[in-house]
């Protein structure tokens, strides 16, 4: 880990000011992912700007839905009564992630900024187009059994966001509020927040340099209230998803009125599946519907896959 300076700020303006002065500086909230990246020499920042005192707090009902401040902690959000009642998929996605210690530290904004668990990215000794653009992607023919099969490119097949929360948020049409150095806020749907790797896998989100995540807002909906998050992994806890699904259904009189489906662990970004939603909408809510073969949502360039033992 390189030497760095540390400064704690009280306002967004102050925070963005430091980032403008030192473009390679990084914001730090819970630090649970950033410090790992720095200890592995995967990211180097001359300055860390502590944004924990920013007023991006609160879990509250608004006319647009439930608004969650970016500084809220994963455990607080996951256990919040409104989240539990109205957005069970969001609660489950948070509480199935990481460990209690990490959830107590990690912020919602930081969660959205997690980086891939691709083993080639996580070890600075390997070439990696995401880490060192143009250096190559050994994962294409290497150990890729937990990497993406959707949205991949010749440059990168990493599940760029390896976590859970954004998958649930993508399914439930959540919208992020961002604020730039000029104090201007904009709203970006979670489904558009992450970008496909294409030829520039180093660019993972639409966040502009210095821009801050202020909040996430999840619209109220019947399919949100009947939602769930399924996470498949090799061990029962403390593991990233091999594959996951956030599903919300509005079922009335046995018929699916509206459906929301997003997949995690299999796409280069949280993967909303309108194809699956289309199949489900209007169909009877039966096992036969759920098990019926359906079109593949989207496929990137093919690559070899390996199993865990090779």
């Amino acid at each position: 880990m390189n030497n760095f300076s540390y400064i704690q700020v009280n306002s967004a303006k102050e925070a963005t000011g430091y980032r403008q002065a030192t473009p390679q500086a990084a914001y730090i909230a819970g630090g649970t992912t950033l410090l790992d990246l720095m200890k592995g020499n995967l990211e180097e920042h001359p300055q860390l700007v502590d944004i924990n005192l920013l007023p991006f707090k609160g879990i509250e009902q608004t006319s647009d839905g439930l608004r969650i401040g970016a500084m809220e902690r994963m455990s607080d959000v996951g256990e919040h009564p409104l989240v539990l009642q109205q957005y069970p998929a969001v609660s489950e996605s948070l509480l199935l992630a990481a460990s209690p210690q990490l959830r107590n530290m990690a912020s919602i904004g930081g969660n959205m900024m997690q980086r891939t668990r691709c083993g080639y990215f996580r070890d600075a000794a390997f070439p990696c187009n995401k880490r060192v653009p143009g250096s190559g992607c050994p994962a294409q023919e290497g150990n890729n059994h937990n990497l993406a099969i959707l949205g991949t490119s010749e440059a990168c097949i990493a599940t760029s966001y390896p976590g859970d929360l954004a998958v649930a948020l993508a399914a439930l049409d959540a919208v992020m509020t961002l604020e730039n150095a000029k104090g201007k806020q904009r709203r970006v749907p979670v489904t558009e927040f992450y970008v496909l790797p294409g030829k520039t896998p180093q660019r993972e989100t639409v966040l502009e340099p210095g821009e801050l995540i202020v909040a996430v807002t999840i619209p109220a909906a019947a399919h949100a209230r009947r939602s769930t998050y399924l996470k498949v992994r090799e061990r029962s806890s403390y593991a990233y998803a091999l594959a996951s699904a956030a599903v919300g259904l509005d079922v009335q009189n046995g018929t699916i009125r509206s459906a929301r489906v997003a997949l995690g662990g299999v796409g280069t970004k949280p993967w909303r599946s309108p194809e699956a939603e289309k199949v489900l909408t209007g169909a009877p809510a039966t096992e036969a519907t759920f098990r019926a073969p359906r079109p593949r949502p989207c496929v990137g360039p093919s690559h070899a896959t390996t199993t865990a033992s090779k």
Binding site: R117, F126, G142, N143, R235
Partner: peptide, 29 residues
């Protein structure tokens, strides 16, 4: 059920040399 260190077959370097990525059982298992 889960323990496997995976060596890249071209570069002969482990790709999951950490306890986050080399899985050992947790209590829940």
């Amino acid at each position: 059920l889960m323990e496997a260190t995976v060596r890249d077959q071209k570069l002969a370097r482990y790709t999951n040399a950490s306890l986050a990525d080399y899985h050992i059982p947790v209590n829940a298992d």
